Simulated assay, not measured.
Amino acid sequence: MFNEFELYEISSLLRKYNLACMKEQGYTSINFPAPSSPGITKHNERRYGITDGLLAIRLGYRIPSIEKGDESGTNATALSPDEEFTLTGGSTKPGELGKGGRNKFDKKVPAGGCSGVALKKLGYFPGETPGNPMEVQALDKESFTNSLKSDRVKRSLEKWSSCMRDNGYKYAPEPFSASNDHRFATRSVTKLEKDVATADTRCKQSSRLLTVWSAEETKIQESLIAEHQKELHEVQKQRDTTLSIIERRSGSSS
């Protein structure tokens, strides 16, 4: 539904509105974690793993830091039962609209709580707005998973694995077997990680893995879009509404 950069902007605004609402409800010292920076420079940059050879030489599989971000949310507080009630309106499960009521400060908590208030500021009315963004996430996961079942993708992964062996690195023909190497779970990037990541990008090119994989997944996505056209149309309308509100509100004090 939203790309990584839009989600970062949305999460930042939701945090801002949730904090403001909670303070109005009597919780002046509450804090929520600030969203993490996307850490990439373009949408889906690492959907198929690392592809930038120059970045691999410099950072291995690490994602470069784009910005330091807001550190005011690093000391987030655990919520008490009443704080949870004020935030959610008494919701007991994801997607459920809490009925609201009164909190311990005798403040009137609206249906959906402060979360509902924050969402409404971005044009989404829990329980009323058509278009389920989870539908898009599910379809996105489905297209990715099914693409790995493609014979063409499997053959390209075998070629990639063979190329890695030729470079002295033994990895299974699985998309992230190299980047998930436990030896790279270190605080700082090592020479080995840089060397493997560099070989990874080169082998992706020689095996045509990226070209084949992208083409196969695109075919699957087109089929899923055609099958779920009505639901996706509703989600798209909601996305357009939310983004237009963000454009007006971002950077403002509202």
Rank of each mutant, 00 (worst) to 15 (best):
I10F: 04
S11Q: 15
L13D: 00
Y17V: 08
L19R: 06
I30S: 05
S37I: 06
G39A: 10
N44K: 15
G53N: 12
R58N: 11
L59N: 08
P64N: 00
I66R: 09
E67M: 11
G69N: 08
G73C: 00
N75P: 00
L79T: 08
D82K: 00
T86C: 03
T86D: 09
L87S: 12
P94R: 06
G101C: 10
K104W: 02
K104N: 09
F105L: 15
D106H: 12
G116Q: 03
K120V: 12
G123S: 00
F125W: 04
P130F: 07
E135I: 14
V136T: 14
E142V: 13
N146W: 10
L148S: 07
R155H: 09
K159I: 07
W160D: 09
C163Q: 01
M164Q: 00
D166F: 05
Y169M: 01
E174R: 13
P175E: 06
F176A: 08
F176S: 08
S177A: 15
N180R: 14
K191C: 02
L192I: 13
E193K: 02
T198E: 06
T198C: 04
C203L: 01
Q205G: 08
S207Q: 03
L209W: 07
E222P: 04
I225F: 06
H233W: 02
K237Q: 14
Q238A: 13
Q238C: 05
T242D: 03
S244F: 03
G251M: 06
